[in-house]
Design a binder for these strands. Structure first.
Lengths: 149, 149
DNA sequence: CTAATCTATATTAATTTCGTATAGATTAAA
DNA sequence: TTTAATCTATACGAAATTAATATAGATTAG
């Protein structure tokens, strides 16, 4: 019942981008350093995030990444949905045919409800919420981009 | 973000026991057969369930397992909590010290909320709910114990 | 040109999950 | 009192998944 590093690192990456929303693109190397995450691993996460049009990029020197739309319009569920590739909380939830018993299994409905509870919770949180929260606690000095007050 | 077979099989096992609540103990072999699950694997799940006093057992021929208390008083969360051994949805949720950033990390709170959403959902479902649901769909013939109408 | 950046895939290492195997304890019933 | 049916406990192994690294390349500002 674990949310994998793909989603967790990916969300941290997106929060970093949200902090620089409206400014110049941010280098991946800088984010990896600030968040203390493996750059090469983050690169893998960016591919599906770009494909989902949550991130856009510019190449070459002084290139980098930025959010495709404003932090208020991106929920954590948007991110997790893209990065969590596997079948869901249980194999039978997405694909009832994997199990003979799906039609009459009382527990299948339980896992379905869990999946919905997670989705609802994550849909209720936007990147803007997380940026706001972080600014309560963090000192802004020495960051790659200038954060909004 | 998957609920493992430990919890899923374990819940099915507990539903089987709930169906025989108030009757003679049920053999594990019978349950494994009916649910088409590996008996040796279920045996492993029973150990922590017994330790949590959700199940009691009698040994020897004509022995077996039964619920320690009535199906209305056992929630799916009671079961999952016991069987899902790992650290939770994220390592930092149970133990903030695993990560330097816990104190100021905006995403940690997200995973915390997810954990609570799951717990709340599962706490709202009892074994009695699941037995009732199953009886809508299943033919009772040929089972180990006589199910209540 | 060239160095800094992003893009994409392949490969490896570590961990976890799933299941089996083995050895034993208890007890009803013949 | 023996035996077979059941539960108990731990150890082991195979498969799958996750996490991370490696390699090769494409783009572009300066």
């Amino acid at each position: 019942m674990k949310i994998t590093t793909r989603s967790r690192y990916g969300t941290r990456l997106m929060v970093e981008l949200a902090q620089c929303w409206g400014q110049a693109p941010v280098r991946l190397g800088g984010i990896a350093q600030q968040e203390d995450l493996p750059a090469k691993y983050l690169e893998q996460l960016i591919i599906p995030l770009k494909r989902a049009e949550l991130i856009s990029s510019t190449r070459g020197p002084s290139g980098g990444y930025s959010l495709s739309r404003s932090p208020e319009t991106i929920t954590v569920w948007d991110i997790v949905k893209v990065l969590e590739k596997e079948e869901g909380v249980a194999p039978c939830v997405n694909d009832p045919l994997v199990c003979d018993r799906s039609g009459m299994c009382p527990t299948r409905d339980v896992w379905n409800k869990v999946a919905l509870a997670i989705e609802n919770q994550l849909t209720s949180i936007t990147l803007a919420d997380l940026v706001g929260e972080e600014q309560k606690d963090i000192d802004m000095g020495g960051k790659t981009c200038t954060r909004k007050k």
